[in-house]
Amino acid sequence: MTTTADPVASPQDEFQPAGGRLERGLIWVFIVVPTLALLPAIYFAWGGWISWRDVVLLVVFYVLTTTGIGVGYHRLFTHSAFKSKRGLKIALAIAGSMALEGPVIRWVADHRKHHKYADRDGDPHSPWRYGTSAWAVTKGFVFAHVGWVLWGEERADPKRYAPDLLNDRDMASISGMFRQLAVLSLLAPALIGGLWDRSWHGAATGFFWGTLVRIALMHHVTFSINSICHVTGRKPFAARDRSGNVWWLAVLSQGESWHNLHHADPTCARHGVLRGQVDINAWLIKRFERFGWAYDVKWPDKERLKKKRTALV
């Protein structure tokens, strides 16, 4: 991946402080509150306090926002794995914003810096930042999973890592509308659930399952790519970091957990390139390509993959 970073600059020269008190407070709310909802969710589900309507809201909003992050924020905006028509570009940016992982330009800048310094000094969220002892990796795992967002002090400078998006009027506008899109993401399941059931009960359960539980699941699946996929997993391709493939996250992450190939070939539009590797995001990109909404897709190159192939470990 190409960035505009000065090759002689140090990692410490390439950050800007994390946002102010309001932004940090919102991050805590968006992450902590939905996570706290997971335990009662198990109890309520077991007790039958979930209807097929709630399941539909949970699944639809989960797929919508997971696609926005995986296909939009990650494969399109960060790595340019394909080009898209303006309508699809805007739709993916809005869907990604509704995942409540931050504005698109901020997210892309952080992720591009992650790739530049993956598992080395300067990586915003490497689980190996404190060392390789059991305690160091445990502490690093927590930081990589969620700590870097909640209390980390350094974030990538968008002017250095995402100038292309800063100069894109659509992306700049959508990034500026992040708070409004966050409100939409929070309230839409409750509104739909209430109108669907014509009751406050429908609104309450819609909010619980379609908002709180959906956000918690989506966040921790995404965070697991930073933490779990950089601590464990098979490494069939040569990469300059510790990224691994974690098969049991593949469906929930829509293919993002085939992380070893992604770090070996970041601009590839398909991450699950080996037999039996489910990659829902690649399937969606293929559909977008057939509809004419996506083009210049960087599909896997057999010769390139062959050169990067290692012994399966």
Rank of each mutant, 00 (worst) to 15 (best):
F44S: 06
F44Q: 09
A45H: 00
W46N: 03
G47F: 11
G48K: 04
W49K: 11
I50R: 00
S51E: 07
W52T: 03
R53Y: 02
R53I: 05
L57R: 06
L58K: 02
L58Y: 07
L58F: 13
V59Y: 00
V59F: 01
V59C: 06
F61V: 10
F61G: 12
Y62L: 09
Y62F: 11
V63N: 08
L64T: 02
L64F: 06
T65Y: 01
T66P: 04
T67D: 00
G68I: 00
G68F: 00
I69T: 11
V71A: 15
V71I: 12
V71M: 14
G72D: 10
G72M: 05
G72N: 09
Y73W: 14
H74G: 01
H74C: 12
R75L: 09
R75I: 01
L76I: 05
L76R: 05
L76S: 02
F77K: 08
F77G: 12
F77M: 13
T78Y: 00
T78Q: 08
T78K: 08
H79Q: 13
H79V: 12
S80Q: 13
S80H: 06
A81Y: 02
A81R: 02
F82L: 03
F82V: 02
K83W: 10
K83P: 06
S84G: 15
K85F: 07
K85V: 10
K85S: 12
R86W: 14
G87A: 09
G87D: 04
L88N: 07
I90T: 13
I90F: 05
I90L: 13
I90A: 13
A91P: 05
A91N: 04
A91H: 00
A91T: 02
L92Q: 01
I94T: 13
A95N: 04
G96P: 06
G96N: 08
G96R: 00
S97Y: 11
M98K: 08
A99G: 15
L100D: 03
L100V: 14
E101I: 15
E101F: 14
G102W: 10
P103A: 15
P103N: 10
P103E: 07
P103I: 02
V104M: 14
I105D: 06
R106N: 11
R106Q: 11
W107P: 09
W107F: 06
V108A: 08
V108H: 04
V108G: 11
V108F: 08
A109M: 04
A109P: 03
D110Y: 07
D110N: 15
H111S: 07
R112L: 05
R112E: 00
R112P: 12
K113W: 01
H114R: 03
H114Y: 02
H115V: 13
H115I: 08
H115G: 12
Y117M: 03
Y117L: 10
Y117G: 04
A118Y: 00
A118D: 03
D119M: 05
D119W: 02
D119E: 04
R120Q: 09
G122P: 15
D123F: 07
D123C: 14
D123R: 08
P124N: 09
H125Y: 15
S126K: 04
P127N: 07
W128N: 07
W128A: 09
W128Q: 09
R129N: 07
R129T: 08
R129Q: 15
Y130C: 09
G131I: 15
T132M: 07
S133F: 09
S133P: 10
S133E: 08
A134V: 15
A134G: 01
A134T: 15
A136I: 14
V137E: 02
T138H: 00
T138F: 10
K139Q: 12
K139T: 14
